[in-house]
């Protein structure tokens, strides 16, 4: 293999950042379409229904969803702090731990949400209202699990000194994306 070409190519790190940035954006477009399709379906059900929740069902009390929102917001903020410290090449891994901890707490809050819904008699099989709440939270939680996996992977990469700034930023993009999806879910499914 000849290295003749390296001279006029971009600097190694910049190039890697450029590549992973493009691919992460494409990946997020794909994930966006997945959730967008689900929101489209939800919008149709909601628009064709005369009352919402349908069949005289009770709305879900906002306590747990608000708690989840606060937790996921905190996790996003702590990841921002981590990103900032990493960019200043003064990486403080405690922020990364905090992000993961808030992420796990978010999952716990979702588990509590599911058990409280079941306690109040709302199951996945209780008509379209239950179906929507459960399906959205299931899919979103599965992605949070993937996000936690990504955080763990990032931690390992950093420990082995293999991470570049764009790796951190990309995991961040995915994590913030999940936060935004949750926010939309919170507003459209629980709040209004």
């Amino acid at each position: 293999m000849s290295n003749e070409f390296t001279a006029d190519t971009l600097n190694g790190t910049i190039k890697e950042q450029y590549v992973s940035n493009i691919s992460m954006i494409v990946t997020l477009v794909s994930f966006t379409m997945l959730f967008a399709t689900m929101f489209l379906g939800y919008a149709l059900y909601r628009l064709t229904s005369e009352t919402w929740p349908p069949m005289g069902m009770e709305s879900v009390s906002l306590g747990l969803p608000i708690l989840s929102t606060v937790i996921i917001a905190l996790s996003s903020i702590s990841f921002c702090m981590y990103e900032r410290s990493y960019a200043k090449s003064d990486a403080q891994s405690s922020w990364l731990w905090a992000t993961s901890a808030f992420g796990t707490l978010f999952l716990v809050s979702q588990l509590m949400l599911w058990s409280s819904l079941q306690a109040s008699g709302l199951y996945a099989s209780s008509g379209i209202f239950g179906s929507i709440i459960y399906a959205f939270t299931w899919v979103h939680s599965a992605h949070i699990l993937m996000g936690l996996g990504a955080l763990a992977w990032l931690g390992l990469r950093i420990k082995r000194k293999k991470a570049i700034l764009m790796t951190v930023k990309n995991v961040g993009k995915f994590w913030h994306f999940l936060g935004i999806v949750w926010l939309i879910m919170f507003i459209t499914i629980f709040a209004i």
């Binding site: 064709t48 099989s125 179906s131």
Partner: peptide, 17 residues
Amino acid sequence: FGTQFFLAGAAATNGVG
């Protein structure tokens, strides 16, 4: 899991998909 997204019937009348 028993959700009812695609079961026949309108959401307004019987709450299914």
